[in-house]
Design a binder for these strands. Structure first.
Length: 488
RNA sequence: CGGGGUGUAGCGCAGCCCGGUUAGCGCGUCUGUUUUGGGAACAGAAGGUCGCAGGUUCGAAUCCUGCCACCCCGACCA
């Protein structure tokens, strides 16, 4: 049991906070709702970001950057959009401070009031579509496939590190297309990119689905999502991709000349994932000893710890091991700091989730072996030095796969098919996880279930087969099962 | 915005009810020595606008008034 991390069983929320703080991922800041992402946490985010960026480029997207500040009037151009975001916008009203006459500090200079107030972007559809109007004249200008990495601000009432903070980092893709079909295909394609990223890189199994009208993005015609299941049985929306129809094109008057020389509004998508993925990562894999990071996104994949008293004799061997691993592209850290004792280091590196720990001392050197400890299972093994680097390379892959399998098994065990309301309530209260049940398709029933149980429809899975059934709440006919859960 | 709570060293807390030495304790930090195969031991040291502003008093961390901040629980959310 770790010395300074609350166990999941004792208090799951506190466990989460302890992991974030004690593993050096993030801190609270002086500003309410805003966090400081610390170097280690940012290092993991960088690996996630770099891989996603690569995948966006592979699918033909390019990066650009649009302003942080958006004229207030832009937001109201799209009715549903303003409805969805107005309540959480920070507003810039002045552009200058001055010294207070009584010397008590600085005050807002009332002379410096902006003619048009600016909002800090909660998302960038409006400012981007205002530019797209000028960029798009003809079908020859389409498609526009742009992504931006940015920070956004949504003034949240209650925040949790990574999961919901006022300011967060994300990427937002904004694309423009000639036809409805092409835009829908883009939204689906990017959902697939997210799903592949989550599964292959974060070892996080996700359900691909579409949102119900209640949960849809403000201004979208269809919202696709990937939903993941956390260890406490709560669901987490890990990414969304929206088919925006012509809503923003109409709001910002973005028309183009078609192939048959008519004028038509452009079809749009937007899609994003955020630092919230860090929260998903933590809650999917970590344990009571601390963070567990999948090898593919771990800033350090292997740490080598020598037993200090025999360090001089070990130095050469350690250097060789490290450079062998590096030459295979493995990210290695050697910790020869002799201030801390090995036992302390073992605990520290487990706490921050380094996938593999190598420990070597005089005994190993004599036997020609090294101690290999894997973080996911916490197993230790003595392994011959000969052929070590290929063994480690394979082990990293095995850990990656094991984390995925473990999470998938958890999700499978915590996805329950339910056909009666009694069962529904019972599973929700006593087991948690996803509940696969029939729903009559009305927002009213969804709302009623939410009020009665706090469970929402996470998504209608894309692979849900058509089957005749009865709504679990109202008994009305239904053709598909949807996934319910309590969600972050 | 409603309900509850907390502000004292970097972190976690005691002291406050019942005002009165130089405001303590644990962890961490620094120095030194011995250690080092699962979270080391000893010795010494540094570190404080007691959230802020008024008030009562000979005297306030402690009592009174006002304010501020943060946390937890509810309504909204990636």
């Amino acid at each position: 049991m770790s010395k300074d991390i609350t166990s999941r069983e004792a208090d799951y929320s506190q466990w989460y906070i302890d992991i974030v703080r004690k593993a050096g991922l993030a801190d609270y800041s002086a500003v309410k709702g805003c966090m400081v992402i610390k170097p280690y946490g940012f290092g993991i985010w960088e690996h996630m970001r770099d891989q996603l960026d690569k995948m966006f480029k592979q699918t033909g997207h390019v990066n650009a950057y649009f302003p942080l500040l958006i004229p207030k009037s832009f937001l109201s151009k799209e009715a549903a959009h303003v409805e969805g975001f107005a309540k959480e916008c920070a507003v810039v009203t002045h552009y200058r401070l001055k010294n207070a006459p009584d010397g008590s500090g600085v005050i807002v200079d009332p002379e410096a009031k902006l003619e048009e107030e600016l909002i800090i972007r909660p998302t960038s559809e409006t400012i981007i579509w205002d530019s797209y109007r000028d960029w798009i004249q003809s079908y020859r200008d389409l498609p526009v496939l742009i992504n931006q990495w940015a920070n956004v601000l949504r003034w949240e009432m209650r925040t949790r590190l990574f999961l919901r903070t006022a300011e967060f980092l994300w990427q937002e893709g904004h694309t423009a297309h000639e036809t409805r079909e092409e835009a829908i295909a883009e939204a689906e394609r990017m959902l697939d990119v997210y799903a592949r990223f989550a599964e292959e890189w974060m070892a996080l199994p996700v359900v691909r689905g579409v949102k119900t009208a209640n949960e849809r993005f403000a201004g979208a015609e269809e919202t696709y999502c990937i939903e993941a299941l956390m260890q406490d049985g709560w669901a987490l929306q890990a990414g969304t991709s929206h088919f925006l129809g012509q809503n923003f094109a109409k709001a910002f008057d973005v028309q183009f000349s078609t192939r048959n020389n008519s004028r038509e509004y452009v079809w749009a998508t937007s899609w994003g994932v955020s630092t919230r993925l860090m929260g998903a990562l933590i809650m999917a894999h970590s344990d009571d000893e601390g963070l567990v990071v999948p090898p593919r996104i771990a800033p350090t994949q292997v740490v080598i710890i020598p037993v200090p008293k025999s360090l001089p004799a070990l130095q050469e061997t350690i250097d060789t091991i490290a450079s062998d691993l590096q030459s295979l592209g493995i990210r290695v850290k050697v910790d020869s700091n002799d201030q801390d004792r090995p036992g302390f280091k073992f605990a520290e590196y487990e706490k921050i989730g380094i996938p593999i720990r190598l420990a070597i001392g005089a005994r190993d050197l004599e036997a020609g072996t090294i101690e290999v400890a894997r973080r996911d299972t916490r197993e230790k093994q003595s392994v011959p030095l000969a052929g070590l680097s290929t063994h480690i390379q394979a082990l990293l892959e095995e850990i990656q796969q094991n984390l995925y399998n473990r999470a998938l098994q958890f999700r499978t065990e915590h996805t329950t098919r339910v056909d009666t309301w009694e069962q529904f309530v019972d599973v929700l209260e006593n087991k948690g996880g996803f509940i696969s049940a029939h729903w009559d398709g009305t927002p009213e029933t969804e709302q009623q279930i939410k009020e009665e149980t706090k469970a929402t429809i996470r998504c209608i899975p894309l692979d849900a087969p058509t089957e005749a059934g009865q709504c679990v709440r109202t008994g009305k006919p239904s053709t598909k099962r949807v996934l319910f859960a309590r969600a972050y």
